[in-house]
């Protein structure tokens, strides 16, 4: 046990981190060449999508300490933005997914200014409503969104294998961008200020940190990446409806993935996503009864909260002792 711990520690925490990340990236990039099975590529693609949402969530939930329960709102907004622009105006989602991110940022600004004044559970409850409100809105704006029938997007103009590969790389780029952004955050003054706000907002303020402004900026940043991944997802899935893209489960995934891996760290949400998503999917294929993945998932979530409150990365860094 202690050997594994020190080994993992060596890989993650020390200078070797760079090489590990490099090797993993190279492996990821070459996977479509190594395996002809669409299943594995699709599996990783969806994994990247969830990881992107988790990494995005981590900026506000992990670094800033404002636990959002409504990040699916941004994912769904991104998905609908690209879908509508493609169906109604014929614009390519590979371009408009960025636009979806911008829409989410604007929305986050409108929502963030009032809700970020709330603290703790109150902020969580306020954001919990976000996904539901948007879901209802998109269900009832039939002429624009197709209502409950959803939107069918035109098929991408490639054969299935090529198309999956293209989406795989696109999703990977978005995922990588989100991780690099967090990496920058971890080493910037901005990120340090966010951690302060998380630890003690009052002291942060008396140290001269403009907390209201920085909190809002963090919220906008954390809204951007889930929305972009949502935009890619809608074109990949070729069909979206409010029930699937505003599914509150997606918000939960983001939170639990981050918490398991260790929120407030660069690699925490990534590690959490890899482990939990793999476990949940395996459970789903081994036991075909419906809902098994959610049960396994929830059991792990409970165990994490009890035994690893600081997450895997926090555990490896031995952070649980402070305070």
């Amino acid at each position: 046990m202690s050997f594994t711990r020190s080994l993992i520690k060596k890989c993650l925490v020390s200078k070797n981190k760079k090489y590990v990340v490099f090797i993993l990236t190279a492996l990821t990039l070459s996977l479509p060449l190594l395996s002809s099975e669409i299943f594995y590529i699709d599996f990783l693609l969806v994994l990247f999508m969830y990881a992107t949402i988790a990494v995005g969530w981590n900026i506000i939930g992990g670094y800033t300490g404002y636990v959002s329960f409504g990040h699916v709102a941004f994912f769904g907004l991104g998905a609908y933005t690209t879908a509508i622009l493609l169906v109604r105006f014929g614009l390519s989602p590979f371009v408009t997914c960025i636009l979806g991110g911008v829409v989410a940022i604007v929305f986050a600004l409108l929502i963030g200014i009032p809700t970020l004044k709330l603290k703790g559970a109150y902020f969580a409850i306020a954001t919990l409503g976000l996904g539901f409100v948007l879901q209802l809105l998109f269900l009832n704006l039939g002429s624009l969104t197709g209502g409950g029938e959803g939107l069918s997007l035109p098929l991408p103009p490639w054969d299935i294998k090529t198309s999956v590969e293209i989406f795989y790389y696109a999703m990977f780029i978005v995922f990588l961008a989100s991780v690099l952004t967090t990496y920058w955050l971890e080493h910037s003054r901005f990120g340090l200020a966010l951690k302060c706000i998380r630890d003690d907002e009052l002291s942060a303020e008396t140290s001269g940190i403009p907390t209201a402004k920085l909190k809002t900026m963090a919220f906008l940043l954390s809204a951007f990446f889930p929305a972009v991944s949502g935009g890619l997802f809608s074109y990949y899935a070729t069909y979206i409806d409010p029930i699937t893209v505003f599914d509150p489960k997606i918000s939960m995934y983001a939170i639990v993935f981050s918490m398991l891996g260790g929120s407030g760290s660069v690699l925490g949400p990534v590690i959490g996503s890899i482990i939990l998503y793999s476990v949940a999917q395996t459970a789903r294929y081994l036991i075909t009864a419906p809902g098994v993945d959610v049960m396994v998932f929830s059991a792990i979530a409970v165990a994490v909260i009890i035994y690893l409150p600081e997450g895997i990365v926090g555990f490896l860094k031995g952070r649980s002792g402070a305070k």
Binding site: L192, K195, C196, D199, L202, S203, S207, G208, I209, R319
Partner: peptide
């Protein structure tokens, strides 16, 4: 009131935020 999860150095750096 200090920031318990930051190092001593980081705490001091933050004082010099402006």
């Amino acid at each position: 009131e200090i920031f318990p999860y930051l190092t001593v150095q980081e705490n001091l750096d933050l004082g010099a935020y402006l």
